[in-house]
Design a protein around this nucleic acid. Structure first.
Lengths: 346, 346
DNA sequence: GTAATTAAAGTAAACGGTGACTTTCTGCGA
DNA sequence: TCGCAGAAAGTCACCGTTTACTTTAATTAC
């Protein structure tokens, strides 16, 4: 049906190889022949067959991306940025959602391996590194996004979560909060790092988390954490020393937390300030606009894509590279207690 | 590197074809042989080479999806639902964003055609149908999502936009609004259908749109329409007969509109009620929780996936099928003026 | 006891490209 | 005049499967 190199070759009385060389801009082709071939290619709207090409070259010009949840704006943004960047270079992107389920994630990764994608990018929900040994076995290069593993020497692109935690917590301190609580996320590097940053920031002001002031999102069935945040905040509201500021693992959990706080009849930020993480697009439109740490998801995506392309082009394995993207705090009403006209760039 | 059929065949003293038959559960294989082969496959963690298989079968077990914007929750949800559904059947999904740009969309589609995906699913930003002739030429089946074309007899899965418009507009009328305005979207079927529904609903109450009460989102650079909605609402606020209700093309534009209304010092819904479209996940957390028409994006995705799989399995072209997904209105504070305890299911 | 049938394997030829080598021809310097 | 270099093309084998057809041996029918 679709035109093949052979059709063009026959039409023009050339060999298939010659046509193939034109296709790939091989030097040893005469100018006249090149033009003739290109003309015919256009006429027939020729599209090379990727399957055939992959079979012989061993490369697919396809990257695989696995994220925990495509609906989560943070990951959606990363996916979009990667897609935009790789497209320019002729690479396509196989995307799948793991639903934050390690088992499902392994299935997805296996599928990508079977399809011999050139590079796998994964924001992983694993708690162990076992699964990555599987990838390494197949000699497929991979890049970790956002979430890293201490005992895994792999490519990584994301933020330094300890800084994120410190940024948010210090800000709350500067706004006058002295009983700062933390709603922590699941047992992945991001949550651990942010918790650590939170603790360090408190320590730097000679404070410690008060009893019951670190609560976990839990896995209350919701993917992103609105519900988890809501319930966690309820716990915090019932704590013996009620917090006056909360640093939330991510924006969805902050939304849930804010809902709980408002329902309890408290004011944000006067009674309780809230800071989230992710700086999702709708922060400005919320009941109380949400202060949030921007992790530069678009930059993460772009850098990850660049790295992936670089790796894909090399045939030899490269030394794992870690790229930290800088994060910044975007202050909005949910945490602005001290008058400070400077830092609002919503 | 990776194991091939040949490796297994050599190990077991069989021919490649026999092993291939086991792989595909071909009947004429002895039970003993089948077991031996399967055992060896597991040991070697054998994964069939999709490129080789595609080359000979002409099928890729890959679907292509093009959406205007992966960040838009409506499309993200569709993408996720399609991915979830197709994964179960061993199909993978190539996803790309067209950025609402018809030219870019054509590029993406060409890329998918070159990769010989089995079915293309597209929420199109085209204004003409030309591009689809291209797809038809390659004999690749395709499905339109959400946006349709009157002069194109193609598979379609989405809502009936006229009903959407009527649903929203009638609701505003029932809430006591008599000067109902509409912020319409770009020149695609969804916007046209919703506008028509809006007009029809007004007509059914013997009303007509007042002068200046239908304004366009415009293409103010933002993808989804927050900014466009903001500016459109400003125009409406300046109209000679100020509206008391606005039906917005989608949720992002409704967000923008609400911002403009609140900035003008008006109350929602008392002075101006607002209804959006899409029922995105964060509606409940907004300054004023947003009433919105739920288009069942998850259902759209699921149905589209089912249809795509059905088409992919047939070798012969099938008659185009249109599936309308039913929409429903979710009433929240932004439009609740008459006391009505029944219809809140947020 | 022989022919027809069936089960369980194997053979050979694609599928549409690419990579490594080889051939052919022309022009040029010694 | 010969040899050689370089440009421009062509040959051949292979990538890992599947498909259609053939072979072999065992089983059944008569």
């Amino acid at each position: 049906m679709a035109a093949r190199l052979k059709d063009i070759a026959d039409d023009l009385g050339l060999s298939v190889v010659t046509v193939s060389k034109v296709l790939r801009n091989h030097p040893d082709i005469g100018e006249a022949t090149r033009k003739r071939v290109q003309k015919r290619m256009r006429e027939l709207n020729y599209q090379p067959n990727f399957a055939a090409r992959s079979l012989v070259t061993g490369r697919t010009w396809t990257l695989g991306l696995v994220v925990p949840d495509l609906l989560h704006p943070f990951f959606a943004e990363i996916a979009k940025a990667i897609s935009t960047e790789t497209r320019k270079h002729g690479y396509s992107l196989l995307i799948s959602s793991s639903d934050e389920d390690p088992e499902l994630e392994i299935e997805e990764i296996k599928q990508l391996l079977a399809r011999r994608v050139d590079v796998i990018l994964v924001a992983s929900a694993q708690s162990s590194v076992e699964c990555f040994r599987l990838i390494e076995e197949q000699k497929t290069p991979y890049i970790l996004l956002d979430r890293r593993f201490d005992d895994l020497d792999a490519n990584f692109v994301g933020v330094d979560d300890a800084s994120v935690g410190m940024l948010a917590t210090s800000h709350l301190y500067e706004q006058g909060c002295r009983r700062i609580a933390h709603i922590r996320g699941p047992n992945v590097s991001t949550a651990i790092g942010r918790l650590e940053g939170y603790t360090r920031a408190l320590a730097s002001h000679n404070l410690n988390p008060l009893p019951g002031h670190v609560v976990s999102l839990g896995s209350s069935g919701d993917q992103r954490g609105e519900k988890g945040g809501y319930e966690a905040a309820k716990q915090l509201l019932a704590a013996e020393a009620r917090p006056d500021g909360i640093f939330c693992f991510n924006d969805p959990s902050a939304l849930g937390a804010m809902r709980a706080i408002l329902e309890a009849g408290l004011r944000i930020p006067e009674d309780m300030a809230v800071v989230g993480c992710g700086n999702f697009s709708y922060s400005d439109f919320l009941r109380v606009p949400l202060s949030s740490v921007d992790q530069g998801s678009e930059t993460i995506g772009k850098r990850a894509a660049d790295l992936a392309l670089k790796i894909a082009r090399k045939k030899t394995p490269t030394k794992p590279k870690t790229e930290y993207i800088s994060s910044r705090l975007v202050v909005r009403a949910s945490s602005r207690r001290a008058p400070d006209p400077s830092s609002d760039d919503s």
